[in-house]
């Protein structure tokens, strides 16, 4: 690492000359400074799930690299959808649907939790009502990494291979995202 750092430092400083500090200040957005050349540590991971979330087995191999990290699994239920169902079909129907959704969520969360714990990750799981896009964006700010299915929020098709909710999330979150 030290060889690399000194190499970069020397090169950039030699190009910038005595205007190094001025250039760094003005063009900070474009420059990766020598002190930023460190391998990142991921200690906390957020994984939102919902009824549309696809098969997670493809991403497990990658998540194994974060052994020891704390993972929060959140099964998200769309609050607005349930409110609409309640208003149009009545409370009883809404409760039936909610029960089915909760069962589905429980199965998905348990399966993923078991796999992740098998890799030595510390997993906390929960269910939450809310807005799938905005809530994930807000929650993600407290984590080092977000892991999300490409079909989170809606079904995907061949012509639309990534959910609009996921696109919105990827555009707005400030932490690294793995889309699986």
């Amino acid at each position: 690492m030290s060889i690399f750092r000194s190499l970069i430092d020397r090169k950039f400083r030699s190009i910038a000359g005595d205007r190094y500090d001025e250039i760094v200040k003005r063009y900070r957005e474009f420059l990766l400074l020598p002190e930023e050349f460190v391998l990142p540590e991921v200690e906390s991971i957020l994984i939102p799930l919902d009824r549309f979330s696809g098969d997670f087995h493809g991403v497990l191999d990658v998540l194994e690299a974060y052994r020891g990290a704390k993972v929060r699994l959140v099964y998200l239920l769309d609050a607005q959808t349930f409110r609409l169902i309640e208003e149009t079909l009545g409370e009883e129907e809404a409760q039936k649907l909610l029960q089915v959704e909760r069962e589905r969520g429980k199965r998905l969360v348990e399966a993923l939790k078991e796999s992740l714990e098998g890799f030595g990750l510390e997993v906390q799981a929960e269910e939450r009502f809310g807005d799938k896009g905005d809530d994930v964006i807000e929650m993600a700010s407290e984590y080092d990494l977000l892991v999300i299915s490409r079909s989170f929020g809606s079904e995907v098709t061949k012509t639309s291979p990534i959910s609009p909710v996921v696109l919105k999330v990827v555009q707005h979150v400030l932490v690294p995202v793995i889309v699986y």
Partner: peptide, 21 residues
């Protein structure tokens, strides 16, 4: 703005894609 390449390819790659800021 978010990279245009990212928008074009992220959904069309079969493997998981990590997007870094």
């Amino acid at each position: 703005r978010i990279g245009s390449l990212l928008e074009e390819v992220v959904g069309r790659i079969e493997a998981p894609v990590m997007v870094v800021r």
